[in-house]
Design a protein around this nucleic acid. Structure first.
Lengths: 132, 132
DNA sequence: CTGCATCCTCCTGGATACTG
DNA sequence: CAGTATCCAGGAGGATGCAG
């Protein structure tokens, strides 16, 4: 099929909104306030509910529960109940959950490397707004 | 100083909540509903406001404006006004903005690779809930 | 200790109408 | 075309109290 240069009103969209939907989906899952933090806290091994609660400063019991449920639902963590008295519940990353650490760590490196630049830009922008 | 094995109540926290704060910050910025999508749309070059509006299906004018303002504030995009009639405004990724594409793309690859597993886990979880 | 239910507040984001 | 202003619904998330 001969390819002409006709009706090239737009260049070929390499990054269509279509192909970015999975990214958006994942961001909707891990982009919340606590999910990534919980995954990072579970990086080194299983943790009890109360351990996570103490490790993650500022998280409410409700949100820790909800976050863990969400991660469990999507197969990122497992929940193990030990019916002792008092009861004990351990959470652990699944293989899928552990694999998520890599891209998140990459994002973390970017964040650490570029945070100064972002803060500087933000300060400059805000200063320009005041200056007007 | 001699290092004893005393009071080792907890193993050394490699991933403290402290070290994850930058990640959380970045996620708070790009974890919203549209930012990543806008950055991806600007990957190939400058785009006009109305172009972006058409490319990103479902975004409202208000949110596109707010998202672009936020990205501009943090030094990820530049805003160029051409005072013609009608007015024309172009947005383009900065060097910082372009550098963000790499970790985001890594996340995108993970998303594409693991979305099936996540959906499967989710379906299994939901089925288990109904079954109880 | 772990978890659920309730209530309440704030922010995000959509719809719409109006300016330059 | 680009942007702002206003109004409004829905969800995220915190505080508290109760249950197993």
């Amino acid at each position: 099929m001969a390819v002409s240069s006709l009706h090239v009103t737009k260049p070929t969209p390499v990054h269509s909104a279509e192909s970015c939907r999975p990214v958006t989906e994942i961001l909707a899952r891990i982009g919340d306030k606590w999910s990534v933090l919980v995954v990072m806290m579970l990086s080194e091994g299983p943790r009890r509910f109360s351990e996570l609660r103490r490790m993650i400063d500022g998280i409410s019991q409700r949100m820790l529960t909800l976050t863990l449920r969400g991660l469990e639902r999507d197969g990122l963590v497992t929940r193990t109940v030990t019916p002792s008295i008092p009861p004990r519940v351990d959470y652990e990353l699944t293989t899928l959950g552990r694999s998520l650490r890599e891209p998140v760590t990459a994002l973390g490196r970017w964040a650490i490397d570029n945070r100064p630049a972002m803060l500087k830009a933000r300060a400059a922008y805000d200063a320009a707004q005041d200056g007007d």
